[in-house]
Design a protein around this nucleic acid. Structure first.
Length: 482
DNA sequence: GCCGGAATGA
DNA sequence: TCATTCCGGC
């Protein structure tokens, strides 16, 4: 077997010059370049990359729950991994051992009872910046959140089903199957529009077998000088898979230097819709001009304020704290979206992504394993859930240490944030089910980030502060009224 | 199949 | 640090 360490797979085109905000990864996704362990591709990353590729869907694919994937062809995955790592003797047993090491780190956990099925702990994954294709015409939502009770504000137009649909034309069944939204019996309002979050594997339960989740990985060259202000970074390629399985940059999994540009600089690089996210004082973005609002109105695109303090539920109601060493024992409790880590929730979408192959032809392609031996097309979907209640979005297990929290010099905000998370913020807060229903009619609003921005967060990176304030005012007024 | 300990290597 | 390899046990 040739082992030139440059597998034929996953070779990708250069990094787009325009970084497009997208999904941010949990803390574990970010390794400093100096980290010895991060010099090589990591397995989870490789897995994600495979998951991102349509051609490997016969081998590994998203399935079922939020972040859950099934290895349809363990041998093939192992083989690919072996190729990747120049370990010709790699097999699934070894690979799975490596995967099991992720349990402790909470990068992964096993889906009990399902063979070859694992689940990424995307609890901390957030979608950041969900730029509009056209700010002017696409009302856009960036996670309203519990911080403000999910209250839509004049500044942040709630996303509409139509808008989202337009934003994700390529998401499953758009235009063919169920809409991103299911509109219940014509009644708009709190239950009128339900975003089918199963469209976003990471955010929801429900989809049977995702043909293609939003692109997760967009390994981008990292600016070494940058310290991420909080424990995550958006590094999705403009992709969002709207351009039919975007390729990753060559360096993506081949080096550790793929990390994305910082949010701020990214925003400042972006065309107007993005730059409008920057606080007024931010000159780096200001030059791009303002969009959206007319006459100085605030942009309609809102980055979630650093989320509030309302936890999205701890649902270890049943199993309480009993499970010492019980990681991954509870399949029901999963993750926090925007979790205790307080990651901002937003949605990222590249610009100029129109004209994508909706429902394209991914279907006809054969995976390598299919080519080799034919593949069991599979997986049944066992859940048909819509997430409108994130009460089961909780950290896996509070009895366990979280990800190793490496405090890096100069990343005070991040450390702070992490501490906040592990500090059991959620523990003292009521489960979501006990919380008042969000005022917002839109379920996505409940996906908001949970913790406030670290105080050390530079103002320029603390989006929409004024909006936040206004939201708070609104909330206060509402409370007063009620 | 899955788990996790242990030794080892890069 | 992150696997890889081996292995005994469930």
């Amino acid at each position: 077997m040739d082992c030139n360490c440059v597998s034929d797979l996953l070779l990708t085109p250069p990094v787009p010059t325009l970084w497009t905000p997208g999904i941010a990864f949990p803390d574990w996704a970010y390794k400093p370049e100096s980290s010895p362990g991060s010099r090589q591709i990591q397995l989870w990353h490789f897995i994600l990359e495979l998951l991102q590729k349509e051609e490997y869907q016969g081998v590994i694919a998203w399935q079922g729950d939020y972040g859950e994937f099934v290895i349809k062809d363990p041998d093939e995955v192992a083989r690919l991994w072996g190729i990747r790592k120049c370990k010709p003797h790699m097999n699934y047993d070894k690979l799975s051992r490596a995967l099991r090491y992720y349990y402790n780190k909470r990068i992964l956990h096993k889906t009990k009872g399902k063979r070859f099925t694992y689940k990424f702990n995307f609890s901390k994954v957030v979608l950041v910046n969900y730029p509009l294709l056209d700010m002017a015409s696409s009302p856009f939502l960036l996670a309203q959140n519990h911080f403000n009770g999910g209250t839509a504000t004049p500044d942040c137009s709630p996303v509409t089903p139509e808008a989202l649909q337009s934003l994700f034309p390529r998401l499953p069944e758009s235009g063919r199957g169920p809409s991103l939204f299911e509109r219940s019996a014509g009644a708009p309002g709190p239950d009128g529009d339900k975003l089918r979050l199963d469209t976003f594997p990471f955010l929801s339960s429900g989809a049977p077998c995702y043909s293609k989740p939003p692109s997760l990985l967009g390994p981008y060259p990292r600016n070494p000088a940058f310290d991420y202000p909080w424990g995550f970074n958006p590094y999705l390629p403009g992709a969002f898979s709207l351009n039919n399985c975007p390729k990753l940059p060559p360096g993506s999994l081949y080096s550790s230097s793929f990390y994305p540009n910082p949010l701020q600089s990214s925003l400042s690089q972006l065309p107007h819709p993005f730059s409008s996210l920057l606080p007024p004082g931010d000159t780096t973005g200001a030059e791009r001009g303002q969009t959206g609002g007319t006459n100085g109105q605030p942009p309609r695109l809102c980055i979630p304020p650093y989320p509030g303090s309302v936890p999205l539920g701890r649902t270890e109601l049943g199993n309480g704290g009993t499970g010492v060493g019980d990681r991954e024992r509870g399949e029901t409790n999963t993750s926090i979206i925007g979790g205790g880590l307080g990651l901002g929730l937003g949605l990222g979408l590249g610009l100029g992504l129109g004209g994508l192959g909706v429902g394209n032809g991914g279907g006809g392609r054969q995976s390598p394993s299919e080519r080799r031996k034919g593949v069991k097309q599979d997986p049944e979907s066992d859940s048909e859930l819509e997430i409108t209640d994130l009460s089961d979005c909780s950290s896996e297990n509070e009895n366990e240490p979280d990800f190793p929290l490496r405090k890096e010099p100069g990343v005070g905000g991040r450390s702070h944030l992490l501490e906040a998370k592990s500090g059991g913020l959620g523990g003292v807060l009521p489960p979501l089910s006990s919380l008042p229903p969000p005022v917002s009619p839109h379920p996505l609003k409940s996906l908001g980030p949970l913790t406030p921005p670290p105080s050390s967060l530079p103002p320029s990176l603390s989006p929409s502060l004024s909006i936040v304030d206004r939201q708070r005012e609104t909330e206060t007024l509402k409370l007063a009224h009620s």
